[in-house]
Simulated assay, not measured.
Amino acid sequence: MIRVVVADDEALVRAGIKMVLQPASDIEVVAEAANGREAVAAATAHRPDVVLMDVRMPAMDGLAALRELKRRTSPSKVVMLTTFDIDDYVHSALVEGAAGFLLKDTPPRQLTDAVRRVAAGDAMLSPEVTQRLVEAYIRRTPRTALAARHRLAVLTDRERAVAFEVAEGKSNAQIGRALGMTETTVKAHVSRTLTKLGLENRVQIALLVRDTDL
């Protein structure tokens, strides 16, 4: 039996979700919650397999409740529910460890299927949310590359050449041979590059160069 806690500040929404799940013989709603604090308390007391958690709730919102459950190493898997398909919500929920993110207008059959899949260990995103994530990634990639290229613009041509060699994982000696420099000169270029870019190590140089997508 899959044990579920439903957390939403609207009683009608909770009742609707219960009505959708009730016909499933393998799913049982063991508790309800009207805010994040009640959701944490219910999950702690009942140890459900899945918590269906509204994002926007009074007292403690769904994301804060998710973080609290993760701090308590709760075995419950959390699926966030919202009417707002906003990228920041999706990103924050997934970073905080949510097992799924569904819109409240998800068809009943898909909601029941999502509970089963999440309980079985799968992640679950509604098609609309998946599309938003893809679009957000596509939008973000050019901006990330542009920002990285702008940061590298403060370097001289030789410093930039060294940075690109660093991104290839080469040692100072290898970079020196590739660019016709002494190791001491390469080391000086790396040191100035770190200072100019406000970075701490060669790995960060490599990551920044990779972000340029050049």
Rank of each mutant, 00 (worst) to 15 (best):
L152S: 03
E159R: 02
R140V: 10
G176H: 02
A163L: 11
F164W: 04
R143G: 12
A153T: 10
M181F: 08
P142H: 04
P142S: 09
A147H: 12
A163R: 08
A167H: 02
L152T: 07
V162I: 06
R140H: 11
T141C: 08
F164M: 01
E183S: 14
L179I: 13
V186A: 00
K187W: 07
L155K: 03
V154S: 07
G176V: 05
Q174K: 12
L155D: 02
G176D: 06
T156D: 05
P142K: 03
H189F: 15
G169S: 03
R158I: 02
A188S: 14
F164V: 01
H189S: 14
S171M: 01
E168Y: 06
K187N: 12
T141K: 11
H150M: 14
K187D: 13
A173Q: 11
T182W: 06
A161P: 02
R140W: 06
V166Q: 00
P142E: 09
H189I: 14
H189V: 12
K170M: 07
R158Y: 03
N172T: 13
A178F: 11
T141L: 13
M181T: 04
L179W: 05
T184I: 06
N172K: 12
K170H: 12
R149H: 09
V186T: 01
A153I: 04
R140T: 07
I175C: 00
S171V: 03
R149I: 08
H150T: 12
E159K: 02
V162H: 00
F164A: 05
A173L: 11
A147F: 04
H189Y: 15
R143W: 09
F164Q: 02
T185A: 15
H189L: 15
A153M: 11
I175D: 00
F164L: 02
V190I: 14
L155V: 09
M181G: 03
K170N: 06
A163D: 05
R149W: 09
Q174V: 04
V190Y: 05
T182E: 09
A145K: 06
R140S: 12
I175V: 03
G169L: 06
A167M: 03
T184R: 12
G176E: 02
R158L: 09
T144E: 08
V166R: 00
K187V: 05
H150G: 10
Q174G: 10
R143N: 05
S171N: 02
R151C: 13
V162Q: 00
A188D: 08
A178T: 15
H150F: 14
R177Q: 14
T182K: 13
A153C: 08
Q174Y: 04
A148N: 10
T144S: 14
L152Y: 08
R149G: 09
T141Q: 12
E183G: 15
T156L: 00
G176A: 11
A167Y: 00
A161K: 01
Q174S: 12
R140I: 09
H189Q: 15
I175A: 00
A145H: 10
T184A: 12
E168M: 04
A145M: 14
P142C: 14
N172R: 13
A147S: 11
T144M: 10
G176L: 08
T182Q: 10
A163P: 13
A167T: 03
E183N: 15
G176Y: 05
T185Y: 15
F164E: 00
A145C: 13
V162K: 01
